[in-house]
Amino acid sequence: MTMSDEQDGRVGQVGGIGPVDPVETAIDDIARHMTESAPGADFTARVLARIDSSDDRSWQRRWAWVLSPIAVAAVLIFAVLMLRAPWRSAPKGTPSSVPSVAVAQPPRPEVRLKPDATHTADGTNEVATTRGARTGSRSVARSGNEIARVGPAESDLAPAPIDIEPLGIEAMGSTSLAPLSVDAMESIDVPRLDVPPIEVPTIGEQ
């Protein structure tokens, strides 16, 4: 039976009085055996070696903590500069000296598909819909005989303007129509069609 070490405060059998039960004695004995071993003889040397190496590495760790955010910041700045670099911007179309793109279209006769109530007095009108051959260049809303010119290179390829006298078509006057009267309509002689009722035999009689 394990003796209690109450004099120096050590715990051998807790409570000061050892158990008389042999099973408890065996339990305490085996519990003591489970932790009875000791570390190796070179334990102290290994601890001191770890302390020495950790002291050497400590300044490296300190510098790593200082340099790593600087490195991250440098990478971010570089990335931002690369994204916003001037040579990465999309090229602007035509040089600024060239006037804005306009269409060289010869004056063509206007063909209205609908009566246009917006006809003005001076003969010019706004085109609701136009129809005509396009030369493949862009169409621009225009008024009257305005002609827009394109750049010198495209004007060389454009066909020569054709002078056609505009057709002056007078607008139709709108007349009000009289409401239709059913009684005034001529009747159409259609013979009355008598259709005998269809007899459907009930189910079961067949």
Binding site: D8, R10, V11, G12, V14, I27, D28, A31, R32, T35
Partner: peptide, 10 residues
């Protein structure tokens, strides 16, 4: 239990 029976600790 193990610490108490070890005998090394108060």
């Amino acid at each position: 239990l193990l610490l108490a029976q070890s005998g090394d600790y108060s």
